[in-house]
Deep mutational scan, measured.
Amino acid sequence: GATAVSEWTEYKTADGKTYYYNNRTLESTWEKPQELK
């Protein structure tokens, strides 16, 4: 079936920290989303 993983994109900030952005909800988070675990 369809999965929600594709909504999240992993980015890195200029200082090398990783964060996650959800293209559907426009939410961003420092925590790894449940969908990616």
Rank of each mutant, 00 (worst) to 15 (best):
G1Q: 12
G1A: 14
G1D: 12
G1W: 09
A2F: 10
A2N: 12
A2H: 13
T3L: 12
T3G: 14
T3C: 14
T3W: 04
T3E: 13
A4H: 14
A4N: 12
V5C: 15
V5L: 13
V5K: 15
V5T: 11
V5H: 11
V5G: 14
S6G: 14
S6K: 08
S6M: 09
E7H: 08
E7Q: 06
E7D: 13
E7N: 07
W8N: 00
T9L: 10
T9D: 06
T9N: 07
T9S: 10
E10A: 06
Y11C: 15
K12I: 13
K12E: 07
K12W: 06
T13H: 04
T13M: 05
T13L: 04
T13W: 03
A14S: 11
D15T: 08
D15P: 00
D15C: 12
G16I: 00
G16E: 03
G16D: 04
K17H: 08
K17W: 05
K17M: 06
K17R: 15
K17V: 09
T18Y: 08
T18S: 10
T18W: 05
T18P: 06
Y19C: 09
Y20D: 01
Y20H: 01
Y20R: 00
Y20P: 01
Y20M: 00
Y21R: 07
Y21L: 08
Y21H: 07
Y21W: 08
N22P: 01
N22R: 00
N23M: 11
N23S: 14
N23H: 14
N23Y: 09
R24E: 09
T25V: 01
T25H: 01
T25L: 03
L26M: 15
L26W: 05
L26V: 02
L26G: 15
E27N: 04
E27Y: 03
E27M: 05
E27Q: 09
E27G: 03
S28Y: 14
S28D: 03
S28I: 15
T29C: 07
T29P: 01
E31M: 05
E31R: 04
E31L: 07
K32S: 04
K32H: 04
K32Y: 05
K32A: 08
K32N: 06
P33G: 02
P33V: 02
P33H: 02
P33E: 03
Q34D: 15
Q34G: 11
Q34A: 14
Q34N: 13
Q34K: 09
E35T: 04
E35C: 13
E35Q: 07
E35K: 05
L36P: 07
L36A: 08
L36E: 08
L36D: 08
L36W: 05
L36S: 09
L36C: 11
L36V: 09
K37P: 09
K37H: 14
K37C: 15
K37N: 14
